[in-house]
Nucleic acid binder design. Structure first.
Lengths: 138, 138
DNA sequence: AATAAAGATGCGAATCCCTCGCAAGTAGTG
DNA sequence: CACTACTTGCGAGGGATTCGCATCTTTATT
């Protein structure tokens, strides 16, 4: 249960940077590498952006972290265990809303049944306009 | 019906570059700015990449073209009228498969009803693993 | 047709985001 | 405590996109 184990059990070395990157992703919910770096710098000012990128990649390789492309360009990282919702990305305000994964269940099933396509919910980003930005007058 | 009108009617000037960019997007189905530029160069070798970017943006502003983020990083552009399908992006081979938009109809409806979220099908990219890359042994 | 004003284009520089290479530092092992 | 492999920091490198600006075109007007 100690954090050390989850890293070492997966064959990773325990470095302060690595642990901080993972902790940051978990705290932030979803964040860009830049945001993760900023978070980590609160307790470890010297961390290098390259290190953040490399650790995110490493953590993703062992399944502790996942990334999604939410549109703008950069990737967004999530802790693997927090992926219990869909991401509703608003193209107007850029906000990322959540919706329960079950909302997509039948959709996912029909894609699998009809097209043999296995939808990866972790990479599932939905674009549109959120309720706040949707103006009936337009 | 003439192409001139669809551009001028939307307040845009008619330039050879603009028309060629639009034509290229229509011919290509979906393409990156780079690919559009390459296509345009077949008949207008001197076109500048900046011009392609600017025109894609302009055409998008007036609704003739749309873009999606298919994951890798760069945006992919589509002619607005050709958006009659969903994009199933395979994370393994990178292929972009199609599925009829109706497959998502009930999903879109429930997001609207339950969350007030208006899903923009044009920006709708679905990540997962295509039938060809899906190996039951994994 | 000639002309003026608004817009577009080309070009090069500048950014942004991310990746690399390398030397120095550090965790894990016996 | 020493050794080896993996990590980190740092700076350079690279690809994609954006910007600034001078020049040229399209359009609306004479």
């Amino acid at each position: 249960m100690a954090e050390q184990h989850e890293l070492r059990d997966r064959g990773l070395r325990l470095t302060p940077q690595r642990e901080l990157v993972l902790a940051a992703v978990r705290e932030l919910g979803h964040a860009t590498p830049e945001e993760v770096a900023e978070k980590v710098r609160q307790s470890h000012p010297g961390i290098n952006l390259s290190t953040v990128y490399r650790n995110l990649e490493t953590l993703e390789n062992v399944g502790l972290v996942l990334h999604t492309h939410l549109g703008h360009g950069g990737a967004t990282y999530h802790a693997a265990e927090e992926l219990t919702h869909l991401h509703l990305v608003c193209g107007v305000c850029g906000s990322v809303g959540d919706a329960p994964i079950e909302a997509a269940a039948s959709f996912v099933t029909s894609l699998a049944d009809d097209f043999g396509f296995r939808t990866d919910v972790s990479h599932f980003a939905i674009y549109g306009t959120c309720a706040d930005c949707f103006d009936p007058n337009l």
